[in-house]
């Protein structure tokens, strides 16, 4: 059992939790993930490591309420316990020796992008953070990103904060303005990563994306997280989650991500109704 030490809402649907997990904290690195089960009947869900403290033996996770499992996780409070918490899993992000990097984050993907931006920043790289959200209320981690970057550009779909428009618009403007990026790191919804990769391919800028497919064990055993990269089948949990964005078959990944959507939707509705009853009762 793994105790929740701290819980805070970053926006109405995104929560940050600090969890006591010494075995994970001691070897965790940016870009890696954990798999947790909320309770005895819970499913195994992968979440990227958003931070860690080796001395205190804690790991930070940031998650969005998207399905029954993340909602169950969101109902836990400080002092409560998470049933299972395993990791660190996946291969750490490669950051060493990079000069000038654009870190592009979309929505809750920013939570995964932040530790990578921080590590790059610490290692002396010039970091430009380009982050996108639907609207002002959903903006997260602004302070943290500003502290870890030379340039911070905030985009919203409706223009309620920062610039109105997509991250790709901002990225293209920077590239055209003469910012010579050695690498672009894009983390967010599949569609966003697909279009960032298409854009940077045009300008021949190496691009790394972080894939977060469905998976069960996270150690290579199930193969549920497979995706096609450069025409070859790769397992995100063992070979990734970082891959060359120019080689990933995003359309296939998008199709595969919806495998259980109808079942998830049903579960969410049941839980929401329950929740409403609790509130009104």
């Amino acid at each position: 059992m793994y105790r929740i030490l701290k819980k805070e809402a970053l926006n109405p649907t995104v929560t940050r939790m600090v969890v006591e997990a010494p075995l994970v904290a001691r070897r965790a690195q940016p870009g890696q993930f954990i798999i947790l089960r909320v309770d005895e009947k819970g499913e195994r869900i992968p979440l990227t490591i958003a931070g860690y403290d080796r001395e205190k033996g804690t790991v930070t996770i940031i998650f969005q309420l998207v399905g029954a499992s993340t909602m169950a996780l969101g109902r836990l409070e400080e002092g409560d316990f998470i049933q299972d918490f395993a990791g660190p899993l996946g291969t750490p992000s490669h950051t060493q020796g990079l000069g000038k990097v654009a870190v592009v984050g979309g929505g809750v993907g920013c939570a995964i992008a932040l530790p990578i931006a921080q590590k790059l920043h610490q290692e002396g790289a010039e970091v430009h953070a380009i982050v996108g959200f639907r609207s002002k209320e959903l903006v997260i981690l602004e302070e943290e990103f500003r502290a870890a970057s030379q340039k911070y550009i905030l985009m919203t779909d409706d223009g309620s904060a920062g610039e109105k428009g997509l991250v790709t618009t901002a990225l293209e403007a920077l590239i055209q303005g003469g910012e010579g990026y050695q690498q672009v790191i894009a983390i967010g919804p599949l569609v966003m990563m697909k279009f960032v990769s298409a854009l940077t391919k045009k300008y021949s800028i190496p691009t790394v994306v972080s894939m977060n497919p469905l998976m069960v064990d996270g150690t290579g055993m199930c193969g549920g997280c497979r995706l096609t990269v450069g025409g070859k089948v790769k397992f995100a949990c063992v070979d990734g989650p970082d891959f060359d964005g120019h080689q990933v078959d995003f359309d296939e990944a998008i199709a595969r991500s919806s495998a259980y959507r109808s079942q998830e939707g049903r579960a969410r509705e049941e839980h929401c109704n329950l929740f409403q009853k609790e509130v009104s009762g």
Binding site: C222, G224, R226, T228, V233, A255, S258
Partner: peptide, 23 residues
């Protein structure tokens, strides 16, 4: 790690490794 056949269509939804299905 489960083996696949490397035939077209193997990454369609509804295609599982036995490991994943059984797990």
């Amino acid at each position: 790690l489960p083996r696949f056949m490397n035939i077209p269509g193997e990454n369609l939804k509804g295609v599982y490794s036995a490991n994943e299905f059984l797990t």
